[in-house]
Amino acid sequence: MSLSDEILMAYADGELDPERAAAVEQAMLADPGVAQAVQRHRALRADVFAAFSGVLDEPVPPRLQPRPGAAAAVTDPHNVVRLDALRAARARPAAPRHAWQHWGGLAASLALGVLAGALGWRGMHADGDAAPFASRGGALVAQGALADALSRQLADVQGQPAGGVKLGVSFQAKDGSVCRSFLLGRTGGLACRYGEHWQVPVVAEGEKAQDGAYRQAGSEMPAAVLEAIDERIAGATFDAGAERAARDRGWQGRDAGR
């Protein structure tokens, strides 16, 4: 079966339906040339995106504001900050496909402020460097102890969690990146590895254990994070061996030859 470059491009952009995406994935396994072509499309996309992402962090000149005052973000009653839902329009039917674009709609610094307020970090971490997250190129990225734990810690060898970070599951996402869920106190989140950084598409505060509500053993992860995992995961979560192998690859996706 021969696949046009347009199909490979659409695959790299996450535009194919599951059936056609599966056909491309098979072709990628069978033919390294196909895998390379997909990788070229992805790399160009990532490079072009990165070249312009800094604009999101620039202050918006006042003359552009339709009225004074910046946008407010939305937090729901469970104190879940859906970072991807912070994007502008209220009625947005389609979810963006790539986690690294979820931040597109909003200067990350604004979202960081909202996040700090909603999750109560503002007082805890007056010093910006001690905060677990930073904004970089329009995206929220893990830093400090959280980034270290994501890069080094394996889920099966956690004695005393380093820096208070507990790792959950690791998996390959549909866009080819490797993602890991984490708990920081009662705050859960998902981090996906792009290049040298852990981007964080969703963070949420865990719900308090409620009266009759049962919960699975070890499932302290907030529902919003579990949903985000379901949306992204390709295949199953890594077992201990696969997780170790992923760490040894620097958490780069299997087909990411960069």
Binding site: F52, L64, A88
Partner: peptide, 28 residues
């Protein structure tokens, strides 16, 4: 609320405009 929603889109609109012309003033 429309003004509000447009304000929230400004960073993306500026970034798109910057991909059309690299002059910041022209883009703005």
């Amino acid at each position: 609320s429309l003004e509000h929603d447009i304000a929230a889109l400004l960073p993306r609109l500026r970034r798109f405009a910057r991909s059309l012309t690299f002059h910041r003033e022209d883009a703005d």
